[in-house]
Design a protein around this nucleic acid. Sequence first.
DNA 1: CATGAATGAGAGTTCATTCAT
DNA 2: GATGAATGAACTCTCATTCAT
Lengths: 200, 200, 200, 200
Amino acid sequence: MGEKSEQKRLYILEKAAGVFAAKGFRAVSMKDIVDACEISRGGLYLYYSGTEEIFRDVLKLRLEAEDEASVSGVGADTAMADLLLLFLKEQKKEILRKKNSLTVAAYEYYFAHPTGRGAGQREENMLKQQFDTALKVLRKILEEGVARGEFYCEDCRSTATSMMYALEGMKICARTFGLTEARLDKELLYLLEGIVLEDA
Amino acid sequence: MGEKSEQKRLYILEKAAGVFAAKGFRAVSMKDIVDACEISRGGLYLYYSGTEEIFRDVLKLRLEAEDEASVSGVGADTAMADLLLLFLKEQKKEILRKKNSLTVAAYEYYFAHPTGRGAGQREENMLKQQFDTALKVLRKILEEGVARGEFYCEDCRSTATSMMYALEGMKICARTFGLTEARLDKELLYLLEGIVLEDA
Amino acid sequence: MGEKSEQKRLYILEKAAGVFAAKGFRAVSMKDIVDACEISRGGLYLYYSGTEEIFRDVLKLRLEAEDEASVSGVGADTAMADLLLLFLKEQKKEILRKKNSLTVAAYEYYFAHPTGRGAGQREENMLKQQFDTALKVLRKILEEGVARGEFYCEDCRSTATSMMYALEGMKICARTFGLTEARLDKELLYLLEGIVLEDA
Amino acid sequence: MGEKSEQKRLYILEKAAGVFAAKGFRAVSMKDIVDACEISRGGLYLYYSGTEEIFRDVLKLRLEAEDEASVSGVGADTAMADLLLLFLKEQKKEILRKKNSLTVAAYEYYFAHPTGRGAGQREENMLKQQFDTALKVLRKILEEGVARGEFYCEDCRSTATSMMYALEGMKICARTFGLTEARLDKELLYLLEGIVLEDA
DNA sequence: CATGAATGAGAGTTCATTCAT
DNA sequence: GATGAATGAACTCTCATTCAT
């Protein structure tokens, strides 16, 4: 598997990601991906032997990309309230994003491939990882904010977790029965108000 | 299509519900339902012309059943805190239920059939309806609890909504990356504590 | 088989005729006829066991009806040229008729049930009968016309036969690649001119 | 889809032509053609997506083959009467041909796909084309024959057209209620006699 | 007689997967 | 490595035909 192969593999994953974003996971056939990649049927099978395998790699790739993206440092002197706002803005974007989002496909995939205790769980569940990563960030923000006297919360860990679940709930609701931006803003504001000290 | 037919229709829906609960929505074929019902291919088509139609009716039936179930009156003298506990216990059951739950199938269905503004939306989105119904109940409990001095919350409507999103988040997380009962209990407890007055 | 049965049989044939006229022979299913008759599936089978059987009876009925219609006597003093005109006008109507015509269905039926020497040919081929009947009439007209000095033709029998084939050709052409009324008129005029004496 | 494919396409058309000749158009299923070709169900769909598409190509192929066949030049000194005889002999063969004839299938096809004014009529109606081609040839023969004093007819164009209709009539009669060779010969002779000068 | 629910065969179509080139 | 023709299983859907009521 030379360099060239690896390049092609990445090319396939890129194209496939587009297909999954557009059609979810279950509705995607090998033919869809072959068409999107404009390669031969057999050619695709040289690299992957099914949509599941492809999707797993697509998720892996996305996670790596996100990890890199999140490295963007933040100045130590930034107000935690601002950081929190930034965080929620990111979440909002993710919640509302329709195009190019693998969320629905990931839901479908993990519905069919429950993670937890089963076999072959080498690769971490991507949704869980996203959740945990965001949770960690949020918790850090809260703790620092409390330390600086910007926020109030009794138990930052629990508060952060609860907020994450609410955000997760908004995500799924947005994809199943609609959630207008206005309504979402209201919800996010409510979450914010529960934490930020009134005189801040 | 007399009474006998209606009976059979219900029989089909029952069996089909089991199939959808077991396999989700997209993975279910007419053949699956035919097999589950132990009727002939053509026989099923006498009643339904596709899995979507069947699933819509399955959801409708479930909703009706739930409505009836919730009619169970509660004594006027019950403590609101107890009612809230009861409510959360129900939610917990729903969040953890694996067998016989249509939740995953419903998610899959609504991923593929987005509700919102499109045409033919006579039938209300079942997930939304469940959400709204629970929300209404929760809000009533909170408001009455506040009135009685059992609970504290500034804005019952917003608090209830936020709690519902968190519960929805737990539901989806439970189906995609696992959520142990212990962890869930902790989460629910946290929600509870945010509302119930400490000396209650 | 009481009177009532016979009545129903006729009712079925009537409705079926409409279906055959609209869809031809091969495209018609028992279901189509059941629907058109608004009777039960089983009910139709009490009278007929397939579309072929029905179609045969439909044709028979039509033939009988036409026989009765053609009884319309013509005054002995009518000019043969006028009679010939009348005859051609009838033929023209038949050639152009789209609605309510069993011609196409009959073609399709006889394509699949070639008559000639096979077994079970009790019932005469309806197309042949129509052809022969018209031929006989035409020949009579020609012969009488010649006798009266209105027409000229060496061999009335052959001339009539040839004309009939031409008319048949126009019929099939009208149904397969179009034949405008104008063009048809020209053709009929040409046939006429070949026979009628110029000074008539 | 290189050359090899085109070869196979032709192979399919050949086999399919046999099926259509044997069963007409409507009675032919994709499976019939699959069986005749001894290929797989899916294999056929690589080339054609339905019987109509196949039949259209079959007709096209036949027309092309006939065009090539008719290129066979005739010496300039051939007597027109002989040419006419040759022409009628060809027609006779076509009228009587049972095996390997697509006539019935074409009739059935065009019954169901009326040509005339509708959309997508890029491809000319094959029956019409055959008719028009034969008509042109016949007319040429007549005109040349008249010029040479071999034939007599007032209006070659109309005469040719009328003859073509008669031939068309014989064709359809031969397929629906039988037409013995003897009878056909008589008819053709009659057509001939109407044109050829007696002392020719 | 009449009904219409039920059956099962079969047609059309798609797709994952293989394999000779 | 890469191709894409070929295969066959699986799925959707329709209909002729039967049969208990």
